[in-house]
Design a protein around this nucleic acid. Sequence first.
DNA 1: TTATTATATAGGATTAATTCTTAATTGCAA
DNA 2: TTGCAATTAAGAATTAATCCTATATAATAA
Lengths: 145, 145
Amino acid sequence: MNTQRAAVEILREKCVEHGLKLTPQRIAIYEAICHTTDHPSADKIFKKIKGKFPSMSFDTVNRTLLTFSAIGLLKVVEGHGDPKRFDPNLKQHHHFRCIRCNTIIDVYSRYYDSVKIPQDIQSRFTVLGKRVVLEGICKQCRKKS
Amino acid sequence: MNTQRAAVEILREKCVEHGLKLTPQRIAIYEAICHTTDHPSADKIFKKIKGKFPSMSFDTVNRTLLTFSAIGLLKVVEGHGDPKRFDPNLKQHHHFRCIRCNTIIDVYSRYYDSVKIPQDIQSRFTVLGKRVVLEGICKQCRKKS
DNA sequence: TTATTATATAGGATTAATTCTTAATTGCAA
DNA sequence: TTGCAATTAAGAATTAATCCTATATAATAA
Ligand SMILES: [Mn+2]
Ligand SMILES: [Mn+2]
Ligand SMILES: [Zn+2]
Ligand SMILES: [Zn+2]
């Protein structure tokens, strides 16, 4: 998904860079996720691979995806799985999320409020909400490190 | 959080509007979440309430928060709980999420890419990433209804 | 090529969190 | 006040992630 180079080559480079072994499991998992565009869960990837690689365990898939995220081969994106996070603030606003402590902080910005929804997106979806989501390190977590 | 009217009044209106009973549990839960700004999980709210309302069960808190979200008293926001969702696409892009089926679809937009991070936000946080998140109903779900 | 060894894996156990089930309670309309 | 549909409490069941540990193996050097 990074470039059109073979997924294995991208994976090999990253593994060398981080001193990780290039295992058949890692190759299968990386190839599987690179063929998705639907932001799958670990379980989805596991089920997808199981047919071709029957000895694969769920734990390996889960652990490996987290490893990939740690070395920058993929990203963990906003999901609406559990535990759900609730927001009583119905005013238009935006969010900053700390990738260390997972705190979500409200961000108020007229500039962000005024960001438009392009016409082609309007025609593809029924858009009901819009928000700019920033991520990074919060003040407290910056202090700690 | 909606206005400065007493939370109970806002709640009462919504309950009448949707034919729901105004119970002490619902009042306690709504007041509790209205006093938060940290986007808590159901468990957080439960623990917060338990002291003042010892007979409250976790199930009631969880069920009630989902009810509140269904009648528009609050929103469920993007979280990074489980199950995690993985994205092998490292190119700058944005997301549309369907509130019915939870599908996350990639959105490419030069315009969204060019949205800036305001100076005052830069000084408050170390911003590492930015993305516009749209939500609404996807094509397939629109067909169904 | 073979031996060595630190790393990684499989599979099952454990933990964490939500959702379901059911019997008792209660808000509220008549 | 009464009757009853909606709501709740409590615990069971489910779902999903993480941990544990014995075995297997990729990478390296002899
Ligand atoms: Mn918020
Ligand atoms: Mn994406
Ligand atoms: Zn933080
Ligand atoms: Zn949908």
